[in-house]
Design a protein around this nucleic acid. Structure first.
Lengths: 217, 217
DNA sequence: AGGCTAGTGACAGCGACTGACACTTCACAA
DNA sequence: TTGTGAAGTGTCAGTCGCTGTCACTAGCCT
């Protein structure tokens, strides 16, 4: 009996590891709640660690900086989108595949993250990012990294070399540009539901063709 | 003789104002040179103010934060592009106008900024931004603000309401997305000349059509 | 049982940034 | 020309994000 199947409700790993996970989760949740209730800038790391009863030094052992904790959930959603894109049939063209992937991703975010945080919390977190200059800046930089990943993925789908053919990067750039506008406008709007952002996404993607036409009249 | 025409080499304003301008310029130049020689992160504000012989407090009276000083020249170039876009004949469609505006802008950056800093310095500054995470993040956020300005400008050209018709923002987003890829790849490349980025700009813009086609084969 | 080491807390220190206040210096009017 | 107000600056003290160091505690493994 040196080994046994993992029980249903018991997280993997020894006591050490489980403790670690608990601290990280606690910090994450505490930070998110504080950010949402009083704003990111007005929340100090000390306040977060006070809630969790942990030294400030420990916070920085789990998160490289104060920003990182705000993007933990974002990471999940991004991976979720990438997975959705990967799942698209090879028969779909690049733009169609990306378009369908986002829409499917929005339709299934709930299941994808609900065991970490409720979707509602994620949505409010996203809005916080969009409305906090420091976070928005980091978000955009992270987005360009995601773009590169996607470009490589698209290139693979089409059997191309990203560095030889500019089309993958150009297509992804144009697509992502539109996604960003959508995110921004959604953040400014009233309806903060997933349905709202899904609707806007679709509407704006539909405008790529018309918007890029030579003449708008 | 309570007033006299401004002499040829004498900047406008009283002594007070001229002094102010000199301090600001000195700080700007000192900062840029330090950033370029030893990197942004490794340069402290104290080092900058030591060169100019000014207290740290004074630095922060001229620049809201350490980042701001790195974008002073960038500001000029952006305005230069906006001006170029404004100068495009109404007969050109949105995309054509933007495309021509960037190209013309690159062809004339030299004249536009040379009395503040040599173009070479600007180019190296741009590369610094692209390669410094903290600066890149801010750059991208600033870019979205510029995008909004451009979208309004484009909407005006076409006699549309930005908030009613999504096409201006979508077109600008797609365009800017491609511009960003260009900037990134240029920054990673070897040739740091204006000619190089102009060439890449043109090449990548040419790919928008093909990249957005349904089928790439 | 006892040594090993991962994880933590306490502390000191750096650098970006801010508020308060006193002081210098220019501007402008009497 | 001089005096007065305000603009611009330096000094100082303090906050906050973040890092290095070191000693200590508690799971782990033999």
């Amino acid at each position: 009996m040196t080994e046994h199947r993992p029980g249903p409700a018991v997280p993997a790993g020894g006591l050490r590891e489980r403790k670690k996970q608990r601290t990280r989760d606690a910090l994450l949740r505490a930070a998110l709640l504080l950010f949402l209730s009083q704003g990111y800038d007005k929340t100090t790391v000390d306040e977060i660690t006070d809630v969790v009863q942990v030294s400030q030094r420990t916070f920085f052992r789990y998160f490289a900086n104060k920003e990182e904790v705000a993007f933990a959930v974002q990471d999940l959603v991004e991976s979720h989108f990438v997975a959705a894109l990967r799942a698209r049939p090879a028969s779909e063209g690049p733009l169609t595949a990306m378009r369908n992937a986002v829409l499917v991703a929005w339709d299934t975010v709930d299941e994808a993250i609900s065991d970490v945080v409720p979707v509602d919390l994620y949505m409010r977190g996203y809005q916080l990012i969009e409305s906090t200059p420091a976070l928005l800046a980091v978000h955009l930089r992270r987005s360009t990294e995601l773009e590169e990943r996607i470009a490589r993925l698209v290139a693979d789908r089409e059997g191309l070399d990203v560095d030889a053919d500019p089309r993958p990067r150009v297509a992804v750039a144009a697509f992502s540009g539109v996604m960003r506008v959508t995110g921004r406008l959604w953040g400014q709007g009233q309806d903060t539901s997933v349905a709202a952002i899904r609707r806007m996404t679709e509407a704006y993607l539909d405008q790529i063709g018309p918007a890029l036409a030579a003449d708008w009249r």
